[in-house]
Amino acid sequence: MSDVVVLSNVSKEYPLGKLVVPALKEVSLSIGAGEFVSIAGPSGSGKTTLLNLVGCVDTPTSGAVIVDGLDTARLSERDLTRLRLEKLGFIFQSFNLIAVLDTFQNVEFPLLLQGKQSRKERREVVSELLERVGLDKHHHHRPNELSGGQRQRVAIARALVTRPRIVLADEPTANLDTGTGGAIIDLMKSINETQGTTFIFSTHDARVMKHADRVIRLEDGRIVSSGDIAPNGAAGSRPELSVQEGPAPYLAGE
């Protein structure tokens, strides 16, 4: 299994007035293609920062972030935008749909940005995806006409429509009730299994974590454990599985 995400000694600090607040400290990890990985940890532990760095919407203070073999520090703003459009999908806690577009248009939007497909091809892809997420009857509903679970399904469809290698989900179930949240995770897992898409999602909900192949637990900006799930749903501590402390092997000589 090749790695689609590699973080090597990544630190991220945020200036706060005269203070510097560290959000991530010397984090190194790698995530293989097709993994269904959960980033767990309490609020302020650095989960969102880590996802932002992998998603190329933020830059590390130090260290290297490799996405699909590309060192993001060496990419221009335009290349990073292209990388996000072609290789990454995003699912947000608050869904972040475009309020003035309907379900179909929201999902179709990344394809329009890509500009590669004909209208007919886009229609086919979007319709198929909406059917997959159970929204085939809601093409023309605007976000404010959908329930929270439906909105998150739209967001999932939007994240998947470009067939990205990696989907990043920041607390995708946080704004949903337990049942709907479970259904969303099931949907993500199903897509992961059938399409081989890598999912990296943050959560602090143990019931959500138990669906993950692997849980990377963060505390105070550091990885404290990484491994598969214990029967009670808690993450085990198996750093030898995929997490390397220190630089990733192939970066060691750089």
Partner: peptide, 12 residues
């Protein structure tokens, strides 16, 4: 919304 659009690949 701008942040979202930029995240999903909309250029400047």
């Amino acid at each position: 919304e701008i942040g979202t659009l930029r995240a999903i690949g909309m250029g400047r």
